[in-house]
Each structure stands twice: as structure tokens, then as C-alpha cells.
């Protein structure tokens, strides 16, 4: 699975993207977030307040209950500010 981070999430986590193998017991976006938070202090800080984090699966906005498969592209970012 390809993971992408943008804006301050990228700064806190310290990388713009990474390839991971989705653990067998991670079936939803919410479970992925819980798993990511266990990977280090940068992840924990970036994902500490999910009220200010948005998600996209395969380039569409998605909620925490969205199902995942290992071939998905998942992005984590702050609320967008276009225009």
C-alpha cells in the first residue's frame, strides 16, 4: 500500500510517502490510523487529533470506516484550503 502525507502531517511524520504492507488485521482506515500511531512519536503526534486530519483512498475523500486493501493509495492530510 502506498501512503502519502501532506502539509504539516508530512512535516511531523518526516516523510512525504512510503510503501507499506498492510497488516492482515488492518481492514479499515480507522484501523490503519491506530496501527500508524504505534509506529513512532512522529506518527503519534501527527495523528493525535483526528478532528484536524482528512483522508483519501484512491484519490477520493474517505471516512474512518472505509475498507482498505493492499493495492490502495491512501493519503492523510489537514482540511484542504484551495482557491
Amino acid at each position: 500500500m502506498k501512503l502519502l502525507y501532506f502539509a504539516w502531517l508530512k512535516q511531523k511524520i518526516g516523510i512525504a510517502e512510503e510503501d507499506i504492507t498492510l497488516p492482515d488485521d488492518v481492514a479499515t482506515l480507522g484501523a490503519l490510523v491506530t496501527w500508524l500511531k504505534s509506529r513512532g512519536p512522529g506518527y503519534e503526534e501527527a495523528l493525535g487529533d483526528l478532528a484536524v486530519v482528512r483522508f483519501a483512498v484512491n484519490q477520493d475523500f474517505a471516512g474512518l470506516d472505509h475498507p482498505l486493501s493492499d493495492s490502495d493509495e491512501v493519503a492523510l492530510f489537514p482540511p484542504v484550503t484551495g482557491g
Binding site: F6, A7, F77, V80, T81, G82, G83
Partner: peptide
């Protein structure tokens, strides 16, 4: 233009005298 603000995946980093700051939605 209203929808661009809320659904186009852009983020803005401002350079201020006190340092850099991300614009909040």
C-alpha cells in the same frame, strides 16, 4: 470557487515574520 475552497486538495504555508504557518480551513 466555493467548492474549490473545501474540496480541492491544496494546502497553504504562509511565511510570516514569526516563522512559517499553515493556513487553517
Amino acid at each position: 470557487i466555493d467548492w474549490l475552497k473545501t474540496s480541492a486538495p491544496f494546502w497553504k504555508l504562509e511565511e510570516r515574520s514569526g516563522g512559517e504557518e499553515w493556513v487553517e480551513a
